[in-house]
Nucleic acid binder design. Structure first.
Lengths: 146, 146
DNA sequence: TATTGTTATACTCTATAACTATA
DNA sequence: TATAGTTATAGAGTATAACAATA
């Protein structure tokens, strides 16, 4: 049996750890990507564009407004990393990486993977143990309403 | 034995889960705190002020510039939630919650705890299993340099 | 000379609203 | 009429730099 106060303290510790790990993950990502001269959002966009995608999809994935994507796409286009190609629905523009963009995407992907703490700090067993716990944490709470 | 490609995919999944959980934790926090009419940063500041603390300490804890703390302290002072009291070193000002501030802090603390996913979604065993895994994730990588 | 907190200002990020062209 | 993307603009959030008081 765990005492109430201990459980509270443990829970705060765990919450703090999770936030700290996520913050660290963002720093790791920014650091992995910096050598390529790319701000985080541009790098995330490139990673997302393994296949050509409508600008609206990217907005949804990056959790931002479509108008913001226009700016990102402009910057990536200026750098010659992607082009806008028309979709079947002619209102839609697909963002498609150029060859240079694809090459850069591969490099970024490798750099990010290389720094992955999940890969570097945990063994196979630990990863297998961790996943269901994280999944449980993410699940919508069963609303005990107690 | 786990295949390389599987391990990569699993690792991406886990990284994604961690970031998603942290994002969700921030949303949970904001939601828990909203009924008190407090922006997230003000609430975090109050939670930090269980004991009077120099403004610089708060800046460090919130990971922002000292000049930003001046603004936060102003707002909290306007609301009657804290006062600035001189420290031993007379350059220093300590932020000290008023009685009203302490009461509010207790309420916020309870509201945040009540929503804690760590408490609501995991049992004692799961929490005990989770902690060392998170700790390992956070640890500075042993720099394999491979 | 270095440090704490303050002030004024500037910058970055991102959203909102109005617009064009399609549907 | 509704939707995808664009444009111009505005706002929130936060930092920078110069400053006053103290060390």
């Amino acid at each position: 049996m765990v005492e109430r106060a201990d459980r509270l303290e443990e829970s705060r510790r765990l919450s703090g750890l999770i936030v700290a790990i996520a913050d660290q993950a963002k720093l790791d990502f920014a650091e992995a990507v910096a050598p390529f001269g790319l701000p985080v959002h541009l790098a995330r966009a490139i990673l997302r564009l393994g296949a050509p995608a409508p600008m609206g999809d990217l907005a949804e994935h990056l959790a931002c407004d479509r108008s913001y994507i226009t700016g990102l796409a402009d910057k990536l286009e200026e750098r010659g990393l992607l082009t806008r190609v028309p979709g079947d629905d002619r209102r839609v523009k697909l963002l498609q990486l150029t060859d240079e963009g694809q090459d850069l995407r591969d490099l970024i992907s490798a750099a990010v993977t290389e720094r992955s703490r999940v890969l570097r700090n945990l063994d196979d067993d630990q990863r297998r143990t961790l996943e269901p716990l994280l999944q449980a944490l993410l699940d919508r709470t069963p609303d005990t309403d107690q």
